[in-house]
Design a binder for these strands. Sequence first.
DNA 1: GGTTTATAACTACAGATGTAATCGTTCGAA
DNA 2: TTCGAACGATTACATCTGTAGTTATAAACC
Lengths: 122, 122
Amino acid sequence: MAERISDAEHAVMEVLWRRAPLTATEASDALAPDRGWSLQTVKTLLSRLVTKGVVATEADGRRYLYRPLVEREDYVAHESQRLVDRLFGGRVTPLVAHLAETQQLSDSDIAEIEALLKALKP
Amino acid sequence: MAERISDAEHAVMEVLWRRAPLTATEASDALAPDRGWSLQTVKTLLSRLVTKGVVATEADGRRYLYRPLVEREDYVAHESQRLVDRLFGGRVTPLVAHLAETQQLSDSDIAEIEALLKALKP
DNA sequence: GGTTTATAACTACAGATGTAATCGTTCGAA
DNA sequence: TTCGAACGATTACATCTGTAGTTATAAACC
């Protein structure tokens, strides 16, 4: 995942992560409600993702099936780390503090996070 | 802050947030250790930030002093929200869960966050 | 078997971005 | 008073990104 995935490309990755393998047409259909891109646009984005090495193709007759080569988990981890590095000096605690302060956290949100933290303790 | 701030531009904003107002040369000097950009590059980035309406200039003799027009707090909030929206369906709890799981949180990190959460409760 | 249709491959093109170089002007030093 | 240094303004240019259009080909239908 050395190559950066752009915003538009990320939208395509999301549908692949949700239900790969897909043909270009299927991916385009899945994206239509949200983005309304033409089929050609989706094909361009798929090609770029293949070039970047994050999506693989598999021949299915005379068309391709596309499937992601990187796990969503890894992408999410990578992007989250990028944000933490860029904006919070690489430290997670200030990010959590920021989120806690600026977001509306319900009581159950807080309880959930507390439970999570408790589980992490030795 | 309607216009997006690019990565390189963001690096310039950071030095302005740290010690504005600065001349272009001062900003360039401050960025040199990390990025090693030429003075011209920094000037270009400053101009673009001015065009985008996120940095203001003030004449100081025949040069400019640059200062940010957006608060770092606002930028951080905006970018954090963007990440939460793009990767966690707009919900903060899954992000915190993800961070808690993938990061090395020390005992004191956990304690700090717990204290934060406690303070948020009614 | 000729014609439409689906598909991949190639091309296009404007705007953003990273990274400067050059031009024109003014101020200060010699 | 002239010359160079310091600045802002303008221009440059390759790459990436968003968003397609066009072309070539094979398959399917009639």
